[in-house]
Write a protein that binds this DNA or RNA. Structure first.
Lengths: 332, 332
DNA sequence: ATGAAAGCGCTAACAT
DNA sequence: ATGTTAGCGCTTTCAT
C-alpha cells in the first residue's frame, strides 16, 4: 500500500490537516513544524494522490483537449502551444482526437466531464447548436482554438480568416494576377466559408469576374492539392496563380504542376495558408498566409486559465494578427 | 450540485450498491430493477464521477504518454496510434512533451504517478538507469515506444534499427555506390548508435573503407539536412549517396543539394528513414526505410492494455518488421 | 438479487 | 498555528 497523508502526519507528530497545509503551501504553518513535515514526507517518499485531492477539492487541475487529428501538422503545433502554457500553469492535458466527427466530439466532451476536467479547449470544424448547448450546460469553461462559433457565445481564439484571404488575394491582384484559382477545403466549416468569401470579395472589389470554375475543392490533403493542379492546368483558360486553403494542399499544387512540366512561379504562382513548417520544405519555397498556430494554442490555454481562476478577461473573442509572407512560389 | 449515485438510488428505490452494479454492468441484477435504475439515470441525467470512482477502485482508466515533442511528425503519428488503441479500450490519455530532457522526463513520470495513471507509454532518446529505476519502482506497467532500453528490463516496441540501416546500406552498395555519406542525429540515443553501427558494418562487410568524413551529424531538423548537403558537397571526394537518419533531414539534403545545382538522383542519391508523409511530399520522391510509426504506437498501447489486465504476453521486447521503399531519389 | 457500511486519500470548514 | 471532523462520490466486502 502506498504512503498517505495520514502516515506522514503520524510520523511528524502532527495532524493530517497540518500535512495538507504544508503540501498546499498554506502559510499558516510554523517554520519548524513545516520542516518536520517535509522531513517526514521525504523520509516516507510520500507522493500526494491527485485523485483523492480532486475528489475532495472538486478541482482536478486537468483540462481536456479535443482535437480533430493530432497527426496533422497544423493541429500538432497548436497542441504544443496549448501544452506549453498548460504545463506552465501546472495543468495536465487529457487529449483526444475527434476526426471532426460530431458525435465523437460530443462523446469526448462528455467523457471529459466524467473525468471532471476543470476546463476544455476545443478544436473542430463546425460548432453546431448542439455543441453550444453542451458547452454551456457543462458549468466548466470551454475555449475554441482556431475554431469559430458563429453565435459568438463560446470564448475563442482565431485570426481573421476573411481578411487574411482577402488581403492575400488583393495583393495577388496588385501583382497583376487576373485569373486566380482557389482551393478551399471541404470541411464545411464557417472558417472556410469566410475564406471563400474573402476570396470572392477581393475579386469583386477589383472588378474581376467571379468564375465558378476557378474554385476546386480539396480535402486538406497533399493529394487533393495535386488533383487541384491537374484540374486547373487542364482548363482552357488556366489561372496564373492558385491559392490553397492549407500549406499541405499548396505543396500538392506545386508538385502537381511541376510533375506536368510547369515551372513555379514562372508559369504558375502558388500561395498557401498557415505557414506550417512545410512552407519552407519545398522548392520553390511557399508564399503563404501566416496563421500563428502555436500562439493560438498558447493564447487559448492562457485564456482558459483566466476563466478557470475567474480573472477578468476583456475580450472573449480574441483575434490574433495574421500576415502574408512572400517567398519564391509567387511571381509579381 | 451535480447528481450522484445516491440520488439515482433514491429515485429508483434501490441501494447505492445496486446502482453501482448496473453502471458497472454487473450481471447480478434483476432485469426489472436494472430497467428501473436505468430509467432513473436517464431521467436525472446522471453521469458517473470518474474521480470518485478512481479513488474507490484504485483504477483511473487513464494512461500517461510521455513524448519528446508532439509537434514532430514522427511522434505525432506514433501518438495517433497510441490514442486510437487507447480509446478502443476505453482508456484516456494524459499527454506531456518532455523535450528529451532527462529531468523533465522524470518529473513528468512522477506527476503521472500522482495522477494515478494505470500505466504509461514512454518515448524518449535514452533510457538511463534512473529511468529504469523510476519505472520499476512505480508498480505500474510502462512500455517504451520507439525507444530502446539497453538493459532490456522495460517492455518495448521497436524495429530493428541496426538491421534496417544495415540493409539499406547493403542495398546501396549492391547498386554500385561506393561512397556513402550518413547523417545521424545527435540525440546520443542507443537507437542512433545502432544505426551508425549498421552503417559501418555494412561498409565493412563489403570491404569498403569507413571514412570518418562521411559522417556528418545533424539534429533531426530540415535545416541540419541542408547543412549536411553543404558539407558533403564541399568535400574533395563527394559521396554518391547520402543517407539521413530521418526523412526530414533527408528532405533538407535533397533541397540543399538542389539549391547548389545538383540533380537528384543523377548527381547524388538520397535516402531517408521513417517514411513519414514527408517522403512523398518532395521531388524526387524519397527512397526511405519504413518505420511503421502508427503501428509502433498502436502495438505499444495494445501491449500496455495486456499488462494492465495481467494477460499473458509472450514477448516483452517486440520488434516490428521494417522494409525499404524505393522511390526516385536513388539511382541504381 | 439486494442492502448496509466501511473505506479510498484528501480538503475544508470549524474549533481551539 | 494546529487539530477535529465531515464529507467528496463511488466501489467493495460482507451479510442477508
Amino acid at each position: 500500500m502506498s504512503v498517505t497523508i495520514y502516515d506522514v502526519a503520524k510520523k511528524a507528530n502532527v495532524s493530517m490537516a497540518t500535512v495538507s497545509r504544508v503540501i498546499n503551501g498554506n502559510t499558516n504553518v510554523k517554520p519548524t513544524t513545516r520542516k518536520k513535515v517535509l522531513a517526514a514526507i521525504e523520509e516516507l517518499g510520500f507522493r500526494p494522490n491527485a485523485v483523492a485531492r480532486g475528489l475532495a477539492s472538486r478541482k482536478t487541475t486537468s483540462v481536456g483537449v479535443i482535437i480533430p487529428d493530432i497527426s496533422n501538422m497544423f493541429f500538432a503545433e497548436l497542441a504544443r502551444g496549448i501544452e506549453d502554457i498548460a504545463s506552465m500553469y501546472k495543468y495536465h492535458i487529457i487529449l483526444s482526437s475527434s476526426d471532426q466527427n460530431l458525435n465523437k466530439e460530443l462523446d469526448l466532451f462528455d467523457n471529459m466531464l466524467e473525468k471532471q476536467v476543470d476546463g476544455v479547449i476545443f478544436m473542430g470544424g463546425s460548432i453546431s447548436e448542439n455543441h453550444v448547448k453542451a458547452f454551456e450546460s457543462s458549468n466548466i469553461p470551454v475555449v475554441l482554438a482556431a475554431t469559430v462559433d458563429d453565435s459568438q457565445k463560446i470564448p475563442s481564439v482565431n485570426i481573421d480568416y476573411y481578411t487574411a484571404v482577402y488581403d492575400a488575394v488583393s495583393q495577388l491582384i496588385e501583382q497583376n494576377h487576373q485569373t486566380i484559382g482557389y482551393v478551399p477545403n471541404n470541411s464545411g466549416s464557417s472558417i472556410e466559408a469566410s475564406k471563400v468569401q474573402g476570396y470572392q470579395d477581393a475579386l469583386k472589389e477589383n472588378n474581376l469576374e467571379i468564375n465558378e470554375s476557378f474554385i476546386f475543392e480539396g480535402d486538406d490533403t497533399y493529394q487533393s492539392g495535386i488533383n487541384a493542379a491537374n484540374y486547373f492546368l487542364g482548363l482552357e483558360q488556366k489561372p496564373t496563380v492558385i491559392m490553397a486553403a492549407s500549406d499541405e494542399m499548396a505543396l500538392g499544387v506545386i508538385h502537381g504542376a511541376q510533375d506536368q512540366g510547369f515551372n513555379i512561379p514562372e508559369d504558375l504562382s502558388v500561395v498557401g495558408f498557415d505557414n506550417t513548417r512545410l512552407a519552407v520544405m519545398v522548392r520553390p519555397e511557399l508564399t503563404t498566409v501566416v496563421q500563428p498556430m502555436y500562439d493560438i494554442g498558447a493564447v487559448s490555454m492562457r485564456l482558459l486559465t483566466k476563466l478557470l481562476k475567474n480573472e477578468a478577461v476583456d475580450e472573449h473573442q480574441v483575434i490574433l494578427p495574421h500576415r502574408i509572407i512572400k517567398r519564391s512560389s509567387t511571381k509579381e
